[in-house]
């Protein structure tokens, strides 16, 4: 591991992974407790339309994806708040539409686009230094917003009717935090790719929730777990020369299944 860090791209990858963990742990916890994992998956995949658009217009990747995933997030959130019963269908449609638009726009763009694979499966080893600063900024913004609205977030996640009565701006907060999730996803696509984003966003908070006594604790544990998964996955990818994004996700998935196996033992011990 230490020798690997002599390479600049490995150092960049390590920082990208750590900052992505900060973002994932904080926003992912909000997603998991509000049962919005499918919605987050929809945002990530709809973002592919933004990648195609950026390619087609020759504009920077960040602008295209950010625009697309923000639009998708706000639309999906609006539908979820308005007609919760059938919102999953709508999310599924936007999910597929975004990807289809991305593919068609790529077809219409002359030339060979090998680098598109890196958006699907991530390329943490090729993350530019500027993006790492962006990720740090995003992580800080997510943390600041969460700290400021911490009590409101607890209320809307735990008992939304009560939060409404007490005058918490429930709808506005949902939009703000889903926009935050959308922006986070754009950066995490860099690390693990849009197909795998959902795993990094949901697995660490899922495991953390079972052991945490509060939302804040859950977020902290999720950030730590995510960092462990990122570093371990990166290390395995480096040693065995594997795809980094997929390695990170497989480590996270292993953690997920181990936590499921450990669950019965813990609840058994608690009962005794």
């Amino acid at each position: 591991m230490i020798e690997a860090l002599q390479f600049e791209f490995m150092r960049n990858a390590l920082f990208a992974g750590l900052f992505a963990s900060l973002i994932c742990g904080v926003t992912g916890s909000f997603v998991v407790v509000n049962r919005m994992v499918f919605l987050a998956g929809g945002i990530a995949h709809a973002a592919y339309g933004g990648i195609g658009l950026a390619l087609f217009l020759g504009i920077p990747y960040i602008i295209g994806t950010m625009g697309f995933s923000l639009a998708a997030a706000l639309l999906m959130t609006a539908v979820t708040l308005r007609a919760a019963q059938r919102s999953d269908t709508f999310i599924g449609v936007l999910w597929a539409t975004g990807m289809a638009i991305g593919i068609i726009l790529t077809d219409l763009t002359p030339g060979y686009h090998a680098d598109l694979m890196s958006y699907l499966f991530g390329s943490i080893l090729a993350v530019p230094a500027a993006d790492i600063l962006w990720m740090l900024g995003m992580g800080a913004a997510a943390l600041a917003l969460t700290l400021y609205f911490y009590r409101d977030l607890i209320a809307i996640s735990y008992d939304v009717e009560f939060a409404k009565l007490r005058g918490v701006p429930v709808r506005a907060l949902y939009f703000v935090f889903m926009a935050l999730v959308a922006v986070s996803i754009v950066f995490i696509i860099r690390v693990v790719g849009l197909i795998l984003v959902i795993a990094l966003l949901s697995i660490p908070p899922y495991i953390a929730e079972k052991y945490a006594g509060s939302l804040g604790m859950m977020m902290a544990v999720a950030v730590l777990l995510s960092a462990v998964f990122n570093i371990a996955g990166l290390w395995i990818a480096f040693i065995f020369d594997l795809t980094s994004g997929a390695s990170i996700i497989l480590v996270a998935a292993a953690g997920f299944f181990i936590s499921l196996a450990v669950d019965p033992l813990i609840s058994k011990r608690r009962r005794q």
């Binding site: 009590r151 735990y158 007490r166 509060s214």
Partner: peptide, 25 residues
């Protein structure tokens, strides 16, 4: 209607009652 499985202590649930009591978050 409450979110079962959400990690929260009894005290934190009760604190929720004071939200927006003095126009601050």
């Amino acid at each position: 209607l409450v979110n079962k499985g959400f990690p929260i202590s009894v005290f934190e649930v009760v604190l929720m009652g004071r939200l927006r009591h003095h126009r601050r978050a």
